[in-house]
Design a protein around this nucleic acid. Sequence first.
RNA 1: GGACGGGUGGGUGAGUGGCUAAAACCAGCAGACUGUAAAUCUGCCGCUCCUUGCGGGCUACGAAGGUUCGAAUCCUUCCCCGUCCA
Length: 321
Amino acid sequence: MNPGISELPLVAVVGPTASGKSALGVWLAGQFGGEVLACDSTQLYRGFDIGTAKPGPAERRSIPHHLIDSLTPNEAATAGGYRQMALVVLEDLRGRSRLPILTVGTGLYLQALLEGLAEVPQRSEELRERLRASAGEQGPGYLHRLLARLDPETAGKIAAADEQKLIRAVEVCVLARKPVSEVHRAGRAPLEGWRALKIGLMPPREALYERIHARTDAMLAQGWIEEVRGLMESGLPKNAKPFDFIGYRELRDVLHGKKKLEAARAAIQLATRHYAKRQLTWFRKDPSVHWLTGFGDDSHVQDQAREWLRQQSLAESPRTS
RNA sequence: GGACGGGUGGGUGAGUGGCUAAAACCAGCAGACUGUAAAUCUGCCGCUCCUUGCGGGCUACGAAGGUUCGAAUCCUUCCCCGUCCA
């Protein structure tokens, strides 16, 4: 810990999609004089608004939101890139004595920010192309065997079918000229000067799923499909990253006539449920999270969150604008 | 009233005498995760017991009987569903 910097509190609201993280974040920002910092890989992209459930204009007017719309659809969000951008925002807030409130849907990004990433090389599209090509020629199991030669330890932890992770592991080994496991052991640089207070939203599963279904319908009613049409006609490359997000990919198929709207709707709801479950799995393993049962827009939950933060010796300092 | 076809685990749907607690897929549940993470991947999935084992017991393929050492699979009757003929 750098002795030159005093440690300041930072709040992270974690939870599955549709659990009300944004609502709680904005409310807490009002209570404690904070500003919201999005920690969500999809809300970073400009133009993809409805399907990513970005906070509306009213909320963003009342409380400053950071990093939302910080990337163009042509750029690629990454954990490392997010960390860089977030660090800048944190320093800004430190300078203005505002409490950072992260609304986090992407667990990996929070981890990258708080715990840091190992000194690993960035991705190399060329190398990946070559790896994928040889994997295609050599047949199944090739990447796993290759990794087993480069780094048996890591190969033992990655399933032979997990091509995405295998490619990244091999990529790091090749670029770093040493096993990934070794690179990782060298350690990561955790965030200094901040004390993270994590609040988790854990609504009853059934209610969460109902809300996900209803929210999907509401998004559709808000003109989601028109948003997708506009984005497709705006000259963006067809393979722009955000077109692969839940909902955008299904609605793109609808616009291409490859899928019926009703089928897309059901597919979106299902994919979102699966996603919420994965988020829960990620956050649940973090013992430092203080869990609250319910949705973030529930006033009881909000009061509990405020109460807990007070106990963590967080002083209230409502904005006096 | 008659002729066919069909009723299988939460769903779709294989399975025509033992290798079947019953393929596969979906849903559901649990898990992994260091720069694609709204991604990618893994396990479980009738109930139950334990010494957790390619372990034991129980229940199960519309219902009830029957044949057989043994039936989801064969026979009989009945009940549903679909199509067609009256």
